[in-house]
Write a protein that binds this DNA or RNA. Structure first.
Lengths: 152, 152
DNA sequence: TACAAAAAAGCAACATAGTTGCAAAAATCA
DNA sequence: TGATTTTTGCAACTATGTTGCTTTTTTGTA
């Protein structure tokens, strides 16, 4: 039955929500699930497409905002006016994000990935500048796409 | 006379346009001037405000796109759905951008600056990933704002 | 399990941002 | 100066994001 499947897969989804003190609702479960099934980052539009007409657009906006606030996802800047979101790895608290990883944007498959193993480098800023957060965006060709093009 | 002033200040503005093979129009002069007068980066909205009702919105979009294509300005990613633009320093050709500098986003004055002297660091990417371009965004407090808060 | 309080979702209406095609105006070049 | 090419402005449209309010769902407790 489809129902059983739903219940099973949503079990692992409920836990993080509860841990963050959020009430467990259909849209939150669904959206969190989408993120967990996904290697790359998701934009609001991606979620709208993937979730189909299940949820109101507004609900998606508000859910993303809630997830951001609670430190479940983090926003990845972009230069195409489509901010993407991805799951936080380590424990990010409300407001406190601890991200040291970099983001890779593939020009071929257009996906954005978190490279969790690559730590953001230290920078020497000019006198007077105080750094709070560093975001490194690397554009190029991802592992998968590099491999496919070689074989072709 | 206001006219003379216009002509004088637009002289330095015409040159880069011509060098890039662009016809010299009022909107291009005005928008390029805005960038040259400005320390920080400008979003489409900023330009719309600063240019007043002088130009059509569409013209601003198209001018920014043209400047991007010709390597006169570069786009700075953001996580607030407001891509900002700033003048290119060295010679960037069409398609070929050579930026090694980092971008600083001040949380206080909300301005974005190019720190031209800070070179983007080398990164060791995982096997298979090919890097073409690196964008470093640093969020924090800028020189000016740091100074003001100390005195206050 | 049922119920009241609190939280979230849905809806509608609105505001802003970005795109496209086409006609009018301006810039270029001979 | 005048013909050609380029750019602009306008209109209409699509997409994206926001807000207030009502209904529904969730939660915690009896």
């Amino acid at each position: 039955m489809a129902v059983r499947k739903q219940i099973e897969s949503s079990l692992s989804v409920q836990e993080p929500l509860k841990r963050k003190g959020l009430s467990v609702t259909d849209s939150r479960k669904k959206i969190l699930q989408l993120f967990m099934q996904q290697k790359g980052a998701l934009s609001h539009g991606d979620i709208e497409k993937k979730a189909g007409a299940t949820f109101d657009r507004v609900t998606i906006y508000r859910t993303l905002q809630t997830f951001l606030d609670k430190g479940i996802i983090h926003a990845i800047p972009s230069s195409d006016n489509a901010v993407r979101y991805a799951l936080c790895q380590d424990e990010c608290g409300p407001g406190h994000h601890h991200h040291q990883h970099i983001h890779f944007i593939c020009g071929r498959c257009k996906q954005t990935f978190c490279l969790d193993d690559i730590v953001t480098p230290d920078l020497h800023l000019p006198k007077g500048y105080q750094s709070q957060e560093i975001d490194v965006l690397v554009k190029g060709t991802c592992k998968q796409c590099s491999a496919t093009s070689k074989r072709a």
